[in-house]
Design a protein around this nucleic acid. Structure first.
Lengths: 210, 210
DNA sequence: ATCATATTTAACCAAATGGTTAAACCTTTT
DNA sequence: AAAAGGTTTAACCATTTGGTTAAATATGAT
């Protein structure tokens, strides 16, 4: 049966409502801090219905977690796979990474946290999506760029570590940065974050260019 | 009364045993995941005794947290306050930071985590110790180094962010790095971490030297 | 209308958890 | 030896939490 036009696109299934609520609560509170009741409240339903859709907390969590992981990696892999000169590729990588981070600021801390408490979470997430980050290709290209005298000799693993660190840490360690080290108000910190794309690329560029 | 010699230095008070156990469990499991029973077990006592020494979980946690924070900051402040040329100072900063991190690898994730879930934890820890990181002086000195044409023009806030990011992230985001991005075994990752002192300094040096 | 199926709810349950109590046990002082 | 103080324990309690059950309600098909 066809639904009336004004009800068609707007509708969100209960399952979606639950996943949205669960995502929010899990990210905010972590596995240990998240409460099924709070998820139900956030989804506007009651606990029994929650268990009707997802048998238990673990199943719901895994579903949320897999959903999160599957969002970032394909994005980065396309860039890594692409054919462009090393400096352009690095810049594209930083750009894409920061776009994602700016739109999902609380994600890195959540992922690091859950991953460190449950190592095989990532295995499950990978298996479910069939995606893995292709870091090997990047390492190769850095080696080539060194041979071609495009950049100074540098250990590619550390260069990549440095780039990723500069991208992610201001988000993941936000509480430390903002409250402990810099002690700036929220809006100012957001302003800093927006400048990172440019600042990181310049840092990397100057540190490797010959 | 004086204790017999052979019992003097070795003895650990019950309070110390509790604090050591609590530190371990809190760091490992976080506030939400930590169980008073597990702390008691780890300290080799029972729950009632735990509550005799520390009235409740919160009090015990605050004590542990303050103890952790008070270990890093004085260390860094001495370096920041010291009078040495900019490059030496940066190197000393990286050295000291990495020494601390190598000896306390799980700390950054724990601190970031708890801080992001409870903002005023840090206020309490600061008040209790009267210590705050002196980042202002560092910013000034970077500005001066730019004026003196020692280093290229760069936003000091971002330079510091970059340095701290490269130092801390391989520890804080270890689960992401090791398991997701690099997929290397434990010993190899430890090897990488030990190389960071040199690698980070070289990265920073080349990125700002004129 | 009515039957079947999917959706939603209130009430309930067992286990875990932070915290309490009152009594027992040392160790030192008198 | 007995009083006093701090130290340690087993047993207990109230609340929270993940999860279940059985009944009620809506929705679409016959």
């Amino acid at each position: 049966m066809v639904k009336p036009f004004d009800k068609m696109e707007v509708e969100i299934t209960t399952e979606e409502k639950i996943l949205i609520a669960a995502r929010k609560v899990f990210i905010e509170k972590g596995w240990d801090g998240a409460r099924m009741q709070e998820i139900a409240d956030n989804a506007g339903i009651n606990k029994a219905l929650l268990h009707y859709y997802f048998r238990n907390k673990e199943q719901l969590f895994k579903r949320v977690f897999a959903g999160i992981v599957s969002k970032l990696i394909p994005n980065l892999n396309t860039i890594i796979q692409s054919e462009q000169p090393i400096f352009e590729k690095i810049q594209a990588f930083i750009d894409a990474y920061l776009d994602f981070l700016l739109a999902n600021q609380e994600l890195p801390l959540f992922v690091a946290n859950e991953l460190s408490r449950n190592a095989n979470l990532i295995v499950g997430a990978f298996e479910e999506n069939g995606l893995k980050p292709m870091i090997g290709k990047m390492v190769m290209e850095i080696f080539q760029a060194i041979e071609n005298k495009q950049i100074r000799p540098i250990n590619p693993a550390h260069l990549l570590m440095n780039i990723v660190s500069m991208c992610v840490f201001p988000f993941m360690g936000r509480s430390i940065f903002q409250k402990v080290l810099m002690q700036v108000p929220e809006e100012m910190y957001q302003e800093l974050l927006k400048q990172r794309k440019k600042e990181i690329y310049e840092m990397v560029y100057h540190s490797i260019v010959l």
